[in-house]
Amino acid sequence: MDLTVLWFILVAVLFAGFFFLEGFDYGVGILLPFLGKSDGERRAIINSIGPFWDGNEVWMLTAGGAMFAAFPHWYATLFSGFYLALFLILVALILRGVAFEFRSKDERRTWRNFWDWMLFLGSLLPALLWGVAMANLIRGVPIDARMQYAGSFFDLLSPYTLLGGLTSLLLFTLQGALFLALKTGDELPQRARQAGLKIGTGTVAALLLLLIMSYRETDIFTRMVPGIAAWGALVALLLAWWLLSSRSYGGAFILNGLAILLGTAALFGGLFPRVMVSSLNPQWSLTIYQASSSPYTLKVMTIVAFTLVPVVLLYQGWTYWVFRQRVKARDLEY
């Protein structure tokens, strides 16, 4: 296989893994102030993702690093055009990480409530902005003939891209509700189920509207496979909602995760062989061949990736196995 194509697929896989794993992290953080009725319950909610959240973020760092090394022109154009949005994501992630560490440093209710809401904000902003960014990739942004972004931050905001952000926000929040239904005890699973049923209804509506608008705003459905993947994501989401209503939390979590994976596959499949679409002139769109590094760089990266990535996957899988038990408020030490 052409190494340029291979690394495009690997970047897509890394983003898919990131959205699947970090999606429930974001969702748990968003739901924290609403589902946790006491400090003990909020601690249980936070502890449910405590062993995982920083490992899940590694997928984002790896995806960004792979993009930088394999497709430096893509990285440069994307980060220059989306600079403010990515800066806001960075600030939100810093707030989120600090909230995890600082919340338990003081027992005062006002202190802990403050960091709970910082965790909420630090989870909500990335969940929203990643959807806006992905929608812009397929809709197109103003890129000139020199592969430079020629617009402003407000060029990234449109009804379609904001709907993309809302859809990702709802998908991740639903994934968080399903995770809490699986990982917590006492009354929290029932509250998570009720929240998930309400959120799921809005998620189905948002995703359906996004798919319909995509036919007018993008060209990703000009090929059959991305279209099948996109509509498959909607079917998986509907089945996840049905299983949640039947209290089959494990199946619902897997199917909602499948909806996220299929949506990501549709996005990158619709882009290929482009990496960014130019709204000024289709001929100025960036392709994997224009944006890629040298063949030697890609060869070295391939050797390193296929040597180290399996080790990382095994370690992360072991972490999920070790911390597989439910977290209950009454079992926490005070």
Rank of each mutant, 00 (worst) to 15 (best):
A240G: 05
N281H: 07
A266M: 04
M224F: 13
E217H: 11
G270A: 12
L271C: 06
I260W: 00
S279T: 10
G263V: 00
N256L: 10
T218E: 12
S248M: 13
S245W: 08
A259C: 05
R223N: 12
S248Q: 15
W242S: 15
L280R: 11
G270V: 08
A265F: 13
A233L: 09
R247G: 06
S279Y: 10
L237G: 03
P273C: 06
L234S: 04
L280N: 02
S285L: 08
G232P: 02
G232L: 05
V225N: 01
G251M: 04
S248E: 15
F268T: 08
Q283N: 13
W241V: 15
R247D: 14
I260E: 03
G250D: 02
L255M: 08
M224K: 11
L237V: 08
I228M: 12
V235Y: 03
A240R: 00
L258S: 11
L258K: 02
A252D: 05
A236E: 03
I228Q: 01
S285A: 10
S246Y: 05
V277H: 07
I228W: 04
L286K: 01
W231T: 03
Q283K: 13
R247L: 11
S245M: 14
T218V: 07
S279K: 08
A265P: 05
A259L: 00
P273A: 03
W231C: 05
L262V: 09
G269L: 04
N256D: 12
E217K: 13
S246W: 09
L244G: 09
I254L: 14
L286D: 11
R274L: 15
W241F: 10
F272D: 12
S279H: 09
L271D: 08
I228D: 08
S279I: 05
I260D: 00
P226M: 00
I228E: 00
A266T: 04
V277S: 10
L261H: 02
V277R: 06
I260N: 04
L261G: 03
G227K: 07
I228F: 04
M276Y: 06
S246R: 15
A265T: 12
A259P: 06
